[in-house]
Nucleic acid binder design. Structure first.
Length: 264
DNA sequence: ATGACCGGTCGTACCGGA
């Protein structure tokens, strides 16, 4: 059977209404097959479906209001869509932070892990439990078994080398040991951090603060990740981060993470 | 420098982001 190249991209777009044109133009120029988007920040009624359709992408969106929101756009098929965690969810676990679908030969998840805000904030406890809830979701879906990519904004820097100045993040979220343990528990399911494998650090970042000079000084974090099952990870040809997109006009504060793989 | 940004909201300050 002939092999087929697939390009999967995860990108926290920080409002799809602001950046639809930019995201679609980028997807076309970069030949993306699948876009895993986070922080669309709109309800389904406000998602620019028509613009994506015109560009050849089917879209499944899971959004409620101006917070959170995730989507999968695909030009290689879109089926078996699951919005949110399976089964009824009490708030705040019903927030639109996860969506899954089959895109061609690949089971894809787009995830937006809660920020946590501060180590003493109840939102931080929510973040830790949410990561554990995601772990159970991935176990139930047997994500580690097939050809799977669980990608998105995890809001956790896996190691100190993923932070421009680790000392500044000692007492902040994104770098604490419990968050990293939550992430490791996902990896322990058999989902590999393929950016780490293909782009050894330090200095590999996906997010830079909007504050002036932060991007220019490369004060970034690596918090957008692609966790891949063994079948998917073993078929990866390259992993890249498009820093140029972060330096564009009116950019998202996150850069796209690009995964190229080959499937039979 | 204690500062600086950005998206969204029945807004013109504040929340959330990270």
């Amino acid at each position: 059977m002939p092999e087929v190249d697939r390009r999967i991209v995860t990108w926290n777009v920080n409002s799809i209404r602001v950046r639809a044109d930019q995201v679609i133009a980028w997807a076309r120029a970069n030949d993306a097959d699948v876009l895993l988007l986070q922080e669309t920040k709109c309800g389904d009624e406000d998602f620019p479906f028509d613009a994506f359709t015109a560009a050849g992408y089917e879209v499944a969106h899971h959004g409620a209001n101006h917070w959170n929101g995730v989507a999968i756009a695909s030009r290689i098929g879109l089926s078996r869509i699951v919005r949110g965690f399976r089964g009824p969810q009490a708030e705040p676990f019903d927030e639109p932070r996860v969506i899954a679908a089959d895109c061609g030969e690949i089971r894809c998840w787009s995830v937006y892990v809660p920020n946590g805000r501060e180590l003493w904030d109840p939102h931080y406890a929510f973040k830790l439990v949410w990561l554990e809830r995601l772990r159970h979701e991935l176990i139930g879906a047997e994500a580690a078994g097939g050809r799977s990519i669980v990608a998105g904004d995890f809001n956790v820097a896996p190691a100190d080398e993923d932070i421009y100045m680790p000392s500044r993040w000692r007492k902040r979220t994104h770098a604490s040991e419990p968050e990293r343990a939550g992430l490791r528990a996902l990896v322990d399911l058999g989902l590999r951090d393929v950016t780490r494998e293909h782009l050894p650090g330090p200095g590999v970042y996906t997010w830079w603060n909007y504050r002036p000079g932060q991007f220019e000084k490369d004060h970034g974090l690596r918090i957008d990740l692609a966790l891949c099952s063994a079948t998917a990870a073993d078929s990866i040809r390259s992993v890249r981060i498009d820093r140029a997109a972060r330096g564009s006009e009116r950019p998202s504060d996150h850069a796209p993470l690009i995964i190229d793989l080959v499937v039979p």
